[in-house]
């Protein structure tokens, strides 16, 4: 019963505002979700860090002072301590935000774009095109994603850019299948038939009617995929297949810290916390978006 009260006030507010679009409704329900807001806050924090990091970092990322600063524990001068080469870990973690978020964001954008196009074509035109595209997706999904990423990187050569491409490629079938299934259900809707009855061309139907209506689950899946892409980038970096030294990539920092872990745990703890927090933030935000955008969650 206590839950009924805020619900009814929501409805009153919704009626007062005459120009409520679906997106505005979604924002209203998202902004009520405290956990999701915390997630969004974390994400925003790391985005700001990624943008302004280079101005905030107290030290340069590659400034070494091997003689006097090697493996120093956290102190007022080096907040997160220093690594085996005497570099300030705090500064490197801040700089790493740009790399990790960049890889996460751009790889997901890449797989969303390619996956959407393939998914739309497969879903809308069907028949043999659908069969070919869907089977390719099945084959790609049959491999463990990190294995596939390693294969792609070993073909292209280890570098951050190639790791990004590899992560984008392995995520394509996820988005492709998502969009395909959404298109399949939406193209049977009566408003698509009515669009055809008006005399609309296929392309216009696809981009003006089908795509906007299938976008919501993609936004949710995309947000969650950024989190896993960050982990995958870190994993590739850890394996030496992603970012190359001396780039301050979080996964690479974990790998470098492995050797000195026993004597200087801070070299591993802080990049690890950074990865965990970013992934947590994206996951919380993604869950909130799902609640806000998924019509099945609404009553």
């Amino acid at each position: 019963m206590t839950q009924m009260v805020p619900n009814s006030t929501n409805e009153i507010m919704a009626k007062k505002d005459t120009s409520t679009g679906p997106w505005r409704d979604a924002w209203r329900s998202f902004s009520k979700n405290k956990v999701a807001l915390v997630g969004a806050g974390i994400v925003l924090f790391f985005i700001l860090l990624a943008i302004f990091g280079p101005f905030l970092a107290p030290q340069g990322i590659n400034e070494q002072a091997i003689k006097d600063h090697r493996l120093l524990p956290p102190s007022s001068q080096f907040w997160f301590g220093t690594d085996d080469l005497g570099r300030d870990i705090f500064s490197r973690v801040i700089h790493g935000a740009r790399i990790s978020l960049g890889v996460g964001f751009f790889s997901v954008v890449g797989s969303v774009v390619v996956g959407s196009i393939l998914g739309i074509v497969a879903g809308y035109y069907g028949k043999w095109i659908d069969t070919i595209i869907s089977r390719i997706f099945d084959i790609m999904l049959a491999f463990p994603s990190i294995l596939l990423a390693i294969a792609v990187v070993s073909v292209l050569g280890p570098s951050l850019r190639n790791a990004l491409i590899a992560i984008a490629i392995i995520n394509i079938p996820n988005f492709g299948r998502l969009i395909r299934s959404k298109v399949l259900s939406i193209k049977e809707e009566e408003y698509i038939t009515s669009a055809k009855a008006i005399g609309m061309k296929d392309l216009r139907i696809l981009f003006s009617h089908i795509l906007p209506n299938s976008l919501a689950p993609v936004i949710v899946a995309g947000t969650l995929a950024i989190a896993s892409a960050i982990i995958e980038a870190a994993a590739l970096g850890f394996l030496g297949l992603g970012a190359q030294a001396p780039a301050p990539e979080w996964g690479k920092m974990l790998a470098d810290a492995r050797v000195v872990l026993r004597n200087a745990p801070w070299t591993m703890v802080f990049p690890g916390i950074a990865i965990m927090l970013t992934v947590l933030g994206f996951n919380l935000m993604g869950d909130g978006l799902r609640d806000a955008l998924d019509p099945r969650m609404k009553n």
Partner: peptide, 19 residues
């Protein structure tokens, strides 16, 4: 030619794009 022939659908909840 569909300019000259138009259609009214059964379900007014499904035949209008919600977005």
């Amino acid at each position: 030619a569909r300019r000259e022939i138009q259609m009214v659908f059964q379900d007014p909840y499904a035949s209008l794009n919600p977005r």
